[in-house]
Design a protein around this nucleic acid. Structure first.
Ligand code: FES
Ligand code: FES
Lengths: 151, 151
DNA sequence: CCGTTTTCAACATAAATTTATAGGAATGAT
DNA sequence: ATCATTCCTATAAATTTATGTTGAAAACGG
């Protein structure tokens, strides 16, 4: 009923992957690698990265030796920035941003409920940076490796 | 990126409408009325109400003079119950409920972020009942009326 | 400078899912 | 019997998800 689109899901994984290989933005990362590492079709990644580029969250470098780099440091990019870029808004229902979307906004009680939930999510996603997401991932990878070794 | 489906949106409005006309469950409300009051196609409402019926959130009475009533009192139905009924789960991404959905759950940092957000929403929607939603709506209607009169 | 390779860019199309409408059968009240 | 209503199935329209095809820019080797 409430669903994060695959665009959002893949978009974040793409960004975390770029963050992992981000050495001060001096090395370009090619989508082919991201595709292989994340198991997401390269064609689809190409579509997803467009709005991220438009919103300056990534920079593209064409030609041989090219690829993508983060537009800013991982500590400066928040989850909400990524989600926002990927669809222009980050609200649970259209009517939260665009009060004319539903004709009954003025007398709809559920509207206020969705609005509250949207705010909750926004605050949550504002408090998490790409760096946090990367560290979370790295920690999980390390734990998984340790576990595998213990066997 | 994160979207409440129309099923969820309409489903809640349907339930609030039933709650408004719920006189201890003695009067059946017909979808035709809900359709007119809420501006939602009766055919679509019929589809949406099926899972609500299966989950005993509404009762149906067939034939002439029939209709629907709430399965329990509005104070006993929470928003999360309605959303849960409408799609069987209430999580932002599949992998929160079904860890095998993504193959990389064990090493995916974003997974934990989505999980946190899901929990946030669940808690929020658990704390709001149909009664609350109804009161919110009635208050808004009263305010709108007062404003109209003042003119 | 030229051709080749590597990469992003743009457009088109296919598949799957969600959203919405339609027709008619089953049920029960009067 | 008739009428009002839910119930069931089909299907159309729109959107999201995913793949394919071709083109254009940049680097590099000669
Ligand atoms: S105003 Fe948009 S759901 Fe009620
Ligand atoms: S595990 Fe499902 S999004 Fe990463």
């Amino acid at each position: 009923m409430i669903k994060l689109s695959t665009k959002g899901r893949y978009g974040m994984r793409l960004m975390v992957n770029l963050a992992r290989h981000h050495k001060n933005g001096r090395e370009a990362i090619i989508l082919k690698n991201v595709s292989e590492e994340e198991g997401i079709s390269i064609r689809y990644l190409e579509q997803i990265i467009i709005p991220l580029k438009i919103n300056k969250l990534v920079k593209s470098i064409r030609g041989a030796g090219g690829g993508y780099t983060l537009g800013k440091s991982p500590t400066e990019i928040r989850v909400c920035d990524v989600l926002q870029a990927l669809e222009g808004t980050c609200s649970l229902v259209e009517c939260v941003e665009d009060e004319t979307y539903c004709d009954k906004t003025k007398i709809c009680g559920t509207h206020d409920i969705w609005k509250g939930a949207t705010q909750l999510l926004k605050d949550y996603f504002s408090g998490i940076t790409l760096q946090d997401a990367l560290e979370l991932t790295d920690k999980k990878i390390a734990a998984a490796k340790k576990k595998a070794k213990a066997k």
